[in-house]
Simulated assay, not measured.
Amino acid sequence: MIRYGIVGCGHIARKHVEAITATEGAFLTAVCDQDKTRLSRWSRDGVKGYTDLGMMLREATVDVICICTPSGTHKEMTIQAAQAGKHIIVEKPMALTIADADKMIEVCKNQGVLLSVVHPNRFRPAMEALRHRVVEGAFGTFSHANATVRWNRDQDYFDQAPWRGTRAMDGGVLMNQAIHNLDLLLWMMGDVEEVSAYQATRLREIEVEDVMVSILRFKSGALGVIEAAVTLYPRNLEESLSLFGETGTAVVGGPTANWIKTWQFADLTPEEATEIVQQVGENPYGKPGHQCLIEDMTDAIQRGRQPLITGADGRRVLALVNACQRAALTGQRIRLDELTTGGISG
């Protein structure tokens, strides 16, 4: 039995509780939050509640800590948990700067604990099907790709909690809303070499951008476009990932990227393509992504292997976000190797 503790009992904690409950071999033993009202939601039925992470780490019987607090707190809490010998699942983004991510990875490695970052959309049936086609080489040479997040987060959303929309704790539309889509983009297309970008705060009264557009050049030579916004009226419109190659075109989209919209490949007949689209459409959500992550961490500990989504994966997409932010701030093209090795920390 692998025992889990959760720090941060806000909205996202519910998904972790449900995932742990649904996972064979996993058991929730402790939760932590400074707000006693939020804490009381989960500190019952044998789950002990704490208002201090240090106390939970010292007293509770816990193997894994799930960090579900605002983004700007992830570094310190990860380091604290790792130094206590706990494995860690940290919500996205793993940190707000590459320097912080590097420190988290270093401490976890030195302490011999596993670090996994929450990017659950990789487990969506449509994305698993898309990844399978990429690995098979069904696209041939890629020409370009588009990652699009056209969502609504109104002013009430940002006013719900003081950390939302702040530079120190939220990080902006790429960091907080679009980062899952960007993780998928990198998973499919590989590393980015260079970016340029524009950002703006057009409609929301927040410190960070509410819309950003970026142009990418991948190391493969393929090009890419990122469009991310929380300014859509009156509700979420689209999240999509589109890949274009010499022998394949695929678009996964919908209000959330769960449905195959286009599926055309040189090695598939129209009937074969339609069959795959229909199979995914029968169960577009699949098993909850958080449950897949808890199952993976539980198995990784038991088998002594690395989790499927590691700290390195979280750092990779964070580097892309930091590069886009720096490009928009400076008006210059930013090479990711300069960002990660040249002392620029976002």
Results as ranks from 00 to 15, higher is better:
residue 202 R to A: 14
residue 237 L to M: 12
residue 251 V to F: 00
residue 250 A to E: 02
residue 232 L to V: 15
residue 272 E to R: 03
residue 241 L to A: 07
residue 278 Q to D: 14
residue 234 P to W: 09
residue 245 G to F: 02
residue 189 M to N: 07
residue 298 T to N: 03
residue 213 V to C: 10
residue 230 V to Q: 05
residue 290 H to S: 07
residue 265 F to G: 01
residue 267 D to I: 09
residue 306 Q to L: 12
residue 183 D to Y: 14
residue 208 V to W: 01
residue 248 G to C: 04
residue 197 A to M: 04
residue 306 Q to M: 13
residue 259 W to V: 14
residue 263 W to Q: 07
residue 285 Y to Q: 12
residue 234 P to I: 05
residue 216 L to S: 06
residue 218 F to H: 13
residue 193 E to L: 06
residue 217 R to S: 07
residue 214 S to C: 04
residue 255 P to M: 14
residue 176 N to I: 00
residue 208 V to Q: 04
residue 290 H to R: 04
residue 185 L to H: 08
residue 213 V to L: 12
residue 238 E to G: 02
residue 191 D to F: 10
residue 252 V to L: 05
residue 245 G to N: 08
residue 271 E to Y: 12
residue 219 K to Y: 04
residue 179 I to F: 08
residue 248 G to P: 06
residue 236 N to A: 11
residue 167 R to V: 10
residue 237 L to S: 11
residue 228 A to H: 03
residue 169 M to D: 11
residue 214 S to D: 03
residue 218 F to V: 00
residue 208 V to G: 01
residue 307 P to C: 11
residue 253 G to I: 01
residue 206 I to G: 09
residue 227 E to L: 13
residue 278 Q to A: 15
residue 256 T to I: 06
residue 263 W to C: 05
residue 169 M to A: 04
residue 181 N to V: 13
residue 294 I to D: 01
residue 301 I to H: 01
residue 267 D to A: 11
residue 283 N to Q: 09
residue 220 S to H: 09
residue 255 P to K: 15
residue 210 D to N: 08
residue 244 F to W: 15
residue 183 D to H: 14
residue 278 Q to L: 14
residue 258 N to G: 15
residue 248 G to K: 02
residue 182 L to H: 09
residue 198 Y to R: 15
residue 304 G to Y: 12
residue 222 A to V: 02
residue 258 N to H: 13
residue 307 P to I: 10
residue 199 Q to L: 00
residue 300 A to D: 00
residue 229 A to E: 14
residue 297 M to L: 02
residue 290 H to C: 11
residue 177 Q to R: 12
residue 299 D to C: 12
residue 204 R to N: 09
residue 256 T to P: 00
residue 196 S to N: 08
residue 272 E to C: 05
residue 249 T to Y: 15
residue 221 G to D: 03
residue 282 E to T: 09
residue 189 M to R: 06
residue 225 V to E: 10
residue 253 G to C: 03
residue 250 A to N: 03
residue 170 D to L: 02
residue 297 M to C: 00
residue 261 K to M: 13
residue 284 P to M: 04
residue 215 I to D: 14
residue 201 T to P: 02
residue 274 T to A: 15
residue 261 K to W: 09
residue 225 V to R: 12
residue 264 Q to S: 15
residue 296 D to S: 01
residue 270 P to T: 07
residue 300 A to Q: 01
residue 200 A to D: 14
residue 256 T to E: 12
residue 202 R to N: 13
residue 307 P to R: 09
residue 291 Q to H: 05
residue 208 V to S: 07
residue 234 P to G: 11
residue 275 E to K: 15
residue 238 E to Q: 11
residue 234 P to D: 08
residue 205 E to M: 13
residue 201 T to N: 10
residue 235 R to H: 12
residue 296 D to E: 04
residue 188 M to D: 05
residue 235 R to C: 03
